[in-house]
Structures are given as structure tokens and as C-alpha cells.
Design a protein around this nucleic acid. Structure first.
Lengths: 342, 342
DNA sequence: TTGTATGCGTTATCAC
DNA sequence: GTGATAACGCATACAA
């Protein structure tokens, strides 16, 4: 079968012209006689000709494929990001290879190497919790491969980025808790390393400070996996350690679900006794009981935006060998639901 | 930069040997002098040589990339499937391009063409709701491209498949409802076309029949989008149309969440007044209140299994030009939680 | 307007 | 054990 596939050469022979002319005719060059062009196009259509993309890649040194590395696929926010990226990429005639780092720097490193060896036209990464300005990321820059970081970024890497203002969003969340009367607010934060966990934590502190509530580090609990179970267990700990806590800001909705579940089990009234706010606005936030207040984080938009940035950079690198290193910050929004409506 | 990348030719020139020998040495052929091999390998490592995969693809006519088309990315079951596929693929040195059909046959068709024109080594599809034995799928078979269907299949296409026994699983779900005392069971089914919706519905009917409960088609409600909202609205309708319904079998957990939400709002006791069972065992099933009984559908395993099937078929097609058309059926499991514990 | 010639980097055949 | 040579299909600089 595959041997039967039509090539430029075959079309040329059939029509007794050169492959050059065939190639030009099919690519719409104007230095081709109208009649010739017509004949070529007709035969190409008849034969169902499509250029051999292996040959095209090889010749043009482009694959029209980009690589994406994210920490987790089965995850509301990240899968929304994926969705945004592949949707926008498809519009622009690009395909997307997806890899999952499992929050491991080593995996991420291998995957970066894999993508580079496959010669993708560009790479988008949402960093693993363990990653910073590591060698494998520097390599992407050195090799002059278009590169965009999304959501989980490192400030130390100088490349294009699509982010939200996590500090402001964290501030908004906690400020809201305070505005509904919370006086003693615990924070279940993300792991120590990732920038977004740091920034949300900074937002938490800033909101306390602005409202003259002293910061108490014993009220800060640090997730390792940012999981439902951690939310559940930390909620238990919070209630035991600090019976007078009246508000909890969780790093992400999944963790907040764990919190809600524990509090519900213990018949602790939400929000009357403890108000809870999450982060990201997962679909289930509106379904769970009580409905969870949270911060809207536009995953799909961040995805599509990051592809657009990458595409821009691909063009720019091709034309002027110049990296753009543009930073796009998307808006977040406070979403108030039952879990904080005192 | 890219011009500086080392090639076989460059290594050969540096060492004053032929590219042939360099190639053989690096690929571990044994008809190469040990010393020569060593020199080559050493220099290759020093130069950080990696074969130009565009050239390799072109020469070998293989990309080591497969394509995956699924209806939706932001979806617990499908994202688990994706996860299983990319994990297994990566182990075996394959990469995965992911496309989303949005349940549209037209999109799916375009995407199939796109993947074929990109010359992926194989294609895995979970069919859109609109797809059957359509032309674009037949084309894959005709073009002798390795092909596996997963979960959402068509019986009319003769290719490898990874599925569960939806009929049996549907039967188990409804039989369980009956075993806890339900006498009048409604079914919120999936759309008319997809095989899995049909089979689960058949299972529903079979369970009724086996237990001598007459089938009443007014108790069957048909989703178009298999959404939370449909679950919510159909629950309302069920309660209004048939106040004496005491059990509901929903095509998928998401729909069941809608049902639970409506029943909770109306203070209808679950499971005392109405027992509810879903399908797929989404993560949130255990988190929501009441915890949802459901059928475990092993998404990750189905994904990894489907890649293995595809790989087998890739090998088989290469060696003997023979399609395997093997069907793998994975086990489901009834999971009993609060929503059916009378 | 058309065609000739060349090269992209790798692999495979075959002669030495 | 080694190397010359061809071939994969396409795109382009240049000649005619």
C-alpha cells in the first residue's frame, strides 16, 4: 500500500513535466502556466496526493508539532489547560504531543530531552513541584527552541509565560474571608518550592497584614501532594490544634473538598463555624455541599493563550532568531458561594 | 545553532572514516572493529550527538508517534484513559498526539485525516457519539494503519478494541438496585447512537426481566450531552412523572451527581426514598454526599492496554502485514456506597 | 514558464 | 571490517 502512494515524481512523470513544476503548481507559485497548474492539481486530486510529511519535515526542518509537559493529566485545571492548547493549536495547524511529569523533575528532564530529540517546533511546560531554573530548562533556551511556561513557572527562567497573579488572588481569597468576619484563618498551602504556592501564601500574609491580623505560622499547613486526603487530614489537625479557627484558605479546590468532607463529618457548620475557600474553581465546586467559594482560574484561556505565545515565538525565532519572553497575566475572579456566606 | 548540530558525516570526517562505519558503530552492529566503535562512541558522546529524527523518520518511514482522538479531555474517565496511554507509550518509546473530537463526527473525520497525513504509526480512537462505521474509519483500515478503538467503539468496525462489558455492568448496577429493594427503577441513559449507552440500557432491561419487573419505557430518559445538568433536570422530571420511583440508574457518575443534587435539594432521602447508582467510579463519587454507588471502569488500565494492543498491531503489520483485530475486555466491579445502602 | 541539479541525514546494499 | 554509493520525497537556487 504505502509503496503505492503518489509522489511529486509520479505526478510529474504522468504529465511529462518536471517535479519542480509539479511542486510549484501545488504550492501556488505564480510562475506556473495556468493550464499546467490546472492539470497538476487535477491529477493530484484524482490520485489523492498528500505530501509525504516525513520528507517535508526533513526538508523544511519543521514538524508542526509542539510538545507539552504537565504535572498531571487527570486534574481539572490541567486538563482544561490541555484542552485550550490543543484547540488553539489545531486551529493553527499544529499538533500537540502531551507528556506527564508526575511532579518529578527527573521525568520532566527526560521528557524535555525526548521532545528536543523529536525536534518539536516548540515546548510548553507547566513545571513540576521539584523544578526551578534547572539545567534541562536552560538547555531549551540554549538550543533556541521556542519555549513557554504556563501557570507553574520559575521566576528564574527568562522566557515567555502565561500566568495569573497568584499573590493577588490569594489576597482576594483571604481578604474575602476576613470581610465575612473571620478572625483566625488557617492556610493549607502547596509545597515549598513551586512559585504559585509561594505567591498564594504571600497573598494570605498580605491580606492578614492589611487587616491587622497578626500572622501565626502555626496556622500554616503545607501539602506535599496537594490532595484530597491532605485536605481532610489537615482539616482534622486544624480543628484539633486550633479549635478557634474560623476560616480556612486551601491552596486548591481539591484540598478544600477534603476540608469540607472532614468538617461535614464532624458536623462543624460551614460557614458559620468555619468558612472555607478554595482555589481554581473546579467544576465540582458548584456541586459539592456546601457549594465552595473559590478563585476562578481560567485554565482553557491560559492554554490557548500559551499556544498563541508559543506560535508568536516560533515565527519570531524563524524570522529574526529572537526570543520574545513576553509575560501574559490573566485575570482571576473571586467566586462567592455557600462555604463563605455567613 | 541548528546548523552546528553534529551529523554522522561530521563525526566521520573528524575520525577519517566513513559515515557507514559511524552509523554501524553507533547502532551496535557487530561488524565493526572494537577500537573503531569506541572512538566513534566517544566522539559522539563528546559532541552530544543525537540522530536527526526527521531524517530517521524519513528513512525508516516511521515516526514513533501515535495519534489519539477522544471525545473530551476534561473528563475524569477520558483523562484517565489518556494517562494510561501516554504512560505506556512513553515506556515503549512512543509519543502521543492528542486530539479532541468534541463528540463531533466531522471533527473526528478531519482529525483522522490530519493524523494520517502526519504519518503517525497508529491511531487510537474513542468514538464520538455521532460515529459508527463511517468512511473515515474505514479509510484507516484500508490504508493499513494500525488502529485500536477504546471504550466507545462500533461493532461494525473490524479492528482491535479495548472495552468493558457494558451490558453486564449495566445489569450488575440495576440488579444491585433491585437487590436492595427497588421496585420501580428509572434509567437515565446515554444518547441513542453510542454502543456503550445501548449496552448499558440492554443491561438495565435484562436485570428487570430477570427479576420479573416489567419494562416501562416511560422510565427511560435519554441524555444528549451526558451532563450534570441533564442529570439534575431528568431527576426532576422523574420525580414529577413517577412519584413512586425508588431507584435510578444513571449512565455515568456525572449525571448521577446531577441526580443527587436535585434529590438533596428536594430533601428526598437517598437511598431510603430513591436509591441512586452511577457508572465509571469518578474520583468525586467518594467525596460527594451521599457517597455514590457505581460501577468501577478501569480507565487507566484500558488506556495502557489499548496502547499495548496498538503496539502489537504495529509490529504485526510491519512483519506480516497482518491486522490482529483482537478484542480485550476488562473487568468492571460493582462499588457499593451510601447512595444504595438501604 | 520550465527544468536541472543539489542537498537535507540516515540507512542499506554490496563490493572490496 | 570498511567504505562507496544509492535512495527516501521534497524544495529551491539557478540555468535555460
Amino acid at each position: 500500500m504505502k509503496s503505492k502512494e503518489p509522489t511529486l515524481k509520479y505526478i510529474a512523470e504522468e504529465l511529462n513535466i518536471s517535479t519542480t513544476t509539479v511542486s510549484k503548481a501545488l504550492k501556488g507559485y505564480k510562475d506556473v502556466n495556468a493550464k499546467t497548474r490546472e492539470k497538476v492539481i487535477e491529477l493530484a486530486k484524482l490520485l489523492n496526493y498528500t505530501p509525504n510529511s516525513f520528507a517535508v519535515n526533513f526538508r523544511t526542518n519543521e514538524s508542526k508539532i509542539i510538545g507539552l509537559i504537565i504535572p498531571e493529566v487527570v486534574h481539572y485545571f490541567f486538563s482544561s489547560v490541555i484542552n485550550g492548547i490543543i484547540a488553539e493549536a489545531e486551529k493553527q495547524d499544529y499538533l500537540v504531543i502531551i507528556l506527564q511529569s508526575n511532579e518529578s523533575k527527573d521525568m520532566e528532564k527526560k521528557q524535555v530531552e525526548l521532545l528536543m530529540s523529536k525536534r518539536v517546533d516548540g515546548i510548553i511546560i507547566s513545571l513540576s513541584n521539584e523544578s526551578n531554573n534547572d539545567e534541562h530548562l536552560e538547555t531549551i533556551l540554549q538550543k533556541e527552541i521556542p519555549f513557554v511556561l504556563i501557570d507553574k513557572i520559575s521566576k528564574l527562567i527568562n522566557c515567555s509565560k502565561v500566568i495569573i497573579d497568584d499573590r493577588k488572588a490569594g489576597f482576594d481569597a483571604v481578604n474575602h474571608l476576613i470581610s465575612v468576619g473571620c478572625k483566625k484563618i488557617a492556610h493549607i498551602r502547596g509545597p515549598v518550592n513551586p512559585q504559585n504556592a509561594i505567591d498564594r501564601f504571600m497573598g494570605y500574609k498580605a491580606a492578614l497584614e492589611k487587616n491587622n491580623i497578626p500572622f501565626d505560622k502555626s496556622l500554616v499547613y503545607t501539602c506535599e501532594n496537594v490532595s484530597f486526603d491532605e485536605g481532610y487530614n489537615f482539616a482534622k489537625k486544624i480543628v484539633e490544634d486550633h479549635p478557634d479557627v474560623d476560616g480556612i484558605f486551601a491552596i486548591t479546590d481539591l484540598v478544600a473538598f477534603g476540608v469540607l468532607t472532614y468538617l461535614n463529618e464532624k458536623n462543624i457548620k460551614i460557614p458559620e463555624q468555619i468558612a472555607v475557600i478554595g482555589f481554581s474553581n473546579w467544576f465540582m465546586s458548584e456541586v459539592i455541599s456546601p457549594k465552595l467559594s473559590t478563585i476562578e482560574q481560567p485554565g482553557f484561556k491560559m492554554g490557548s493563550e500559551s499556544f498563541l505565545l508559543l506560535k508568536e515565538e516560533i515565527e519570531s525565532m524563524k524570522k529574526e532568531n529572537k526570543r520574545l519572553s513576553k509575560i501574559v497575566t490573566l485575570e482571576t475572579k473571586l467566586i462567592i458561594r455557600e462555604s463563605t456566606k455567613k
